[in-house]
């Protein structure tokens, strides 16, 4: 067969390829797939929208009617005389514990793992431990808090309240979010280009000086994002607080923001929401919705700050 006259089969193959590449075709399966992806995305966004709309519309009456009383009042047996003062105070102090304890500890651990640690058995054990701690259910951290901070250390955390205080709660939640802080801070440190470190070492700086003056400033926005997300997580947790013994019903005291009241009994926003959810009637549902709006505003404000910080950080890098 001559080279200049291609066989009929290869002509047919070329024709098939050409028509497959150039001819306009409908692609029903491809369209259907893309539409189903849109449905998945829209459904997810719609769920979020319905949730927020539902909570805001139900809670609006309570929030708009008596905002001041609702935000500062005490827990009560009737929806109309129940307020969130004690709960907001508890949640505030839990946040203080997380910021004061977990942020420095978690960032320090991340600095060790990313900047100091050599390959070795102990160091790989440490990173395995951190990854596993991040997956431990929150209620198990509650058991830890119950055993150690409430029972074993009760005389320290709250001698007059059987250890069921905001100190125990704050310590428990600080430990709960520690792996989140370590993992996100380590990621931020890993993203720092090595040239930045080498620049520091090149002028004779020690490792600590390089970390302090070169690595940390570069990684700061990423670290901050992770810590704020961890804080939001801690403020929304309820299960460990149930184990640690947050007060669900009537609570005397627990209003003062003075530090010497830390070793009294306490409650927190997620606990109040959980308790009120179980109470019957439209009025309780409205109060619960209003409490949820307050919690969501706090948590979203934290998350929003994290997102804004990260966007600014990413823009600065390009």
């Amino acid at each position: 067969m001559a080279l200049s006259t291609p066989s009929s089969s290869s002509v047919r193959a070329a024709e098939t390829v050409r028509s497959g590449l150039t001819a306009r075709q409908s692609d029903p399966f491809g369209r259907a797939f893309q539409v189903s992806l849109w449905v998945a995305v829209l459904a997810t966004v719609a769920i979020l929208g319905v949730l927020i709309f539902d909570v805001v519309t139900h809670g609006w009456g309570v929030l708009a009617g008596e905002t001041g009383d609702f935000l500062t009042g005490r827990l009560g047996s009737q929806p109309e005389n129940s307020g969130l003062g004690q709960a907001i105070r508890g949640t505030f102090y839990i946040g203080v514990f997380v910021v004061v304890l977990t942020f420095p500890l978690g960032i320090a651990a991340a600095i060790y793992l990313e900047e100091y640690a050599q390959h070795g058995r102990l160091n790989s054990l440490i990173s395995v431990a951190i990854r596993n701690l991040a997956g431990v259910p929150s209620v198990v951290y509650g058991i830890l808090g119950l055993t150690i901070f409430v029972k074993a250390l009760g005389s320290v955390t709250g001698p007059d309240a059987n250890g069921r205080t905001v100190v125990s709660a704050g310590l428990t939640l600080s430990i709960l979010v520690l792996p989140i802080v370590i993992i996100t801070a380590a990621e931020a440190l890993r993203a720092v280009p090595n040239g930045i470190r080498e620049g520091g070492f090149g002028v004779g700086a020690t490792r600590w000086e390089v970390v302090r003056s070169h690595v940390l400033p570069y990684a700061a926005p990423g670290i901050l994002t992770g810590t704020v997300i961890a804080l939001a997580r801690a403020l929304g947790e309820a299960a460990p607080l149930i184990l640690v013994g947050a007060t669900t019903g009537f609570l005397t005291g627990g209003e003062s923001f003075l530090p010497d009241s830390l070793r009294e009994r306490f409650t927190a926003l997620p606990i109040v929401i959980s308790t009120w959810s179980g109470r019957p009637g439209e009025d309780w549902a409205a109060s619960t919705s209003a409490a949820i709006v307050v919690l969501l505003v706090i948590v979203f404000a934290a998350n929003l700050a994290a997102i804004v910080l990260r966007n600014r950080f990413e823009r600065g890098r390009r």
Partner: peptide
């Protein structure tokens, strides 16, 4: 959505 506390979804 990831930041919504689980008590909220419970309610």
């Amino acid at each position: 959505l990831a930041g919504i506390p689980s008590v909220v979804l419970g309610f």
